[in-house]
């Protein structure tokens, strides 16, 4: 591929990643998923930067990406700490729980149709039976209520 084609293709990929990350960030309500989407947007930017660096024979693109990774790491640290705090306060990762910024007199945003949870989604993976049956420890089972 020629350099120009390479640039075009990478820019398209970068834009797509950015756009998908954007959509995810705007649409998803799980704070961690939103956060992942933000990281995805950063990836899209990184891809574009790498492509431009290659096209212009400049190290600046790669240098920027290094710092992007660094900042993303910092961001992950701080933001995850904040997410944990919020989760401890609200008991859930839902961003829609926090609506304190709304105008006085505005009614609170409510979900009106929460889709039913699909039974198929509740099927958890199981191990194939092999060897002997382990000795059941009822106390331990009390604590292991979730797989």
């Amino acid at each position: 591929m020629s350099e120009l084609t390479l640039l075009y293709n990478y820019l398209l990929i970068g834009a797509l990643l950015f756009a998908i990350g954007l959509v995810g960030f705007l649409v998803r309500r799980n704070m961690i998923v939103m956060f992942l989407c933000a990281e995805l947007m950063l990836q899209g930017v990184s891809v574009s930067l790498i492509a431009w660096g290659r096209f212009h024979q400049d190290w600046g693109g790669q240098m920027l990406v290094v710092f992007i990774i660094t900042v993303a790491a910092c961001e992950a640290g701080v933001a995850l700490a904040m997410v944990l705090l919020l989760t401890q306060k609200s008991g859930k990762l839902d961003i829609a729980f926090w609506q304190e910024l709304r105008d006085p007199g505005q009614s609170r945003f409510m979900d009106h149709e929460v889709p039913e949870e699909n039974i198929a989604e509740k099927v958890w993976p199981t191990l194939t039976k092999a060897g002997r049956v382990p000795v059941r420890n009822p106390e331990e089972e009390m604590h292991r209520n979730r797989v």
Partner: peptide
């Protein structure tokens, strides 16, 4: 316009975008 101030963070993000 007031009803736009619904306090939802993603909404503000969408508006910004």
């Amino acid at each position: 316009m007031r009803s736009l101030q619904m306090g939802l963070m993603p909404f503000y993000a969408l508006a910004m975008v």
